[in-house]
């Protein structure tokens, strides 16, 4: 039997309408999770540099646990494990968002810590010497500068988290990969479909990269 396997462009294009419904799910899980992860990151990132020892410990433990375990295990734990504790099922979308939130939150904590610590000591001293309270010094002087420095690593984390959502096909949430798997089950065009799936991820992450570059440029514009 002579098997020549050729890339079938028509099959690739034909898959697009079946894949597109996955995009809102991918975006919802990614950005829902990242939005929550951002606040988790601010919270634990600041705890991590607290002058109070036990607060630093709480933050360190959080970061080590969620950065040191695979996100696949985390989402399986949340979706299949937690219901045993809670006594009821967890919605797959909620489980996916929660997994991205706690996972990205751990990385963002370190981004926040690094960003704040990167601001020269003189900035804090100058603001305190003007009579600003520690809270005002942080709010008006340290944080705005730290946030600007955090943009590139936050963008990096966003791209990683978007790609991480592809793992959540295992809990049956209808994101991009899941839509691809469902479609392939009827057409057996794995090559073309996964190629399109990859292209769609690239479209999302590349758009985000462009937006981030614009943000960075406007950040620098004033200085």
């Amino acid at each position: 039997m002579d098997v020549t396997f050729e890339f079938d462009w028509s099959a690739a294009f034909a898959s697009i309408p079946h894949l597109l419904p996955g995009i809102p799910w991918t975006l919802a899980i990614s950005f829902g999770g990242l939005a929550i992860g951002f606040f988790i990151g601010i919270f634990f990132g600041l705890l991590r540099i607290s002058p109070v020892a036990w607060m630093r410990w709480v933050a360190t433990i959080y970061i080590e646990v969620f950065r040191g375990t695979p996100i696949l295990v985390q989402v399986l734990f949340i979706f299949y494990g937690l219901p045993q504790l809670l006594g009821g099922p967890i919605n797959a979308l909620v489980a996916g968002i929660a997994a991205i939130a706690v996972n990205s939150g751990a990385y963002i904590s370190e981004i926040v810590r690094g960003g704040v610590q990167s601001i020269e000591r003189g900035q804090r001293e100058a603001s305190l010497s003007l009579g600003l309270s520690r809270a005002q010094s942080f709010r008006y002087v340290i944080w705005p500068q730290a946030l600007r420095r955090m943009v590139p690593p936050l963008g990096n984390q966003a791209i990683i988290s978007i790609k991480d959502t592809s793992l959540f096909s295992v809990i049956g949430v209808g994101e991009l990969v899941r839509q691809g798997q469902i479609y392939i089950a009827t057409t057996f065009t794995a090559l073309e479909v996964y190629f399109m799936v990859a292209l769609l991820y690239l479209a999302i992450t590349w758009t985000l990269s462009v937006v981030l570059r614009l943000v960075e440029r406007s950040n620098l514009a004033g200085q």
Binding site: E125, L128, S129, L130, Q145, R148
Partner: peptide, 20 residues
Amino acid sequence: LQTIRTEVGMVFQQFNLFPH
């Protein structure tokens, strides 16, 4: 300390202006 800092100004070697 807070009161003193509002009454005492300081100029630093490295200026320490707020760059943003």
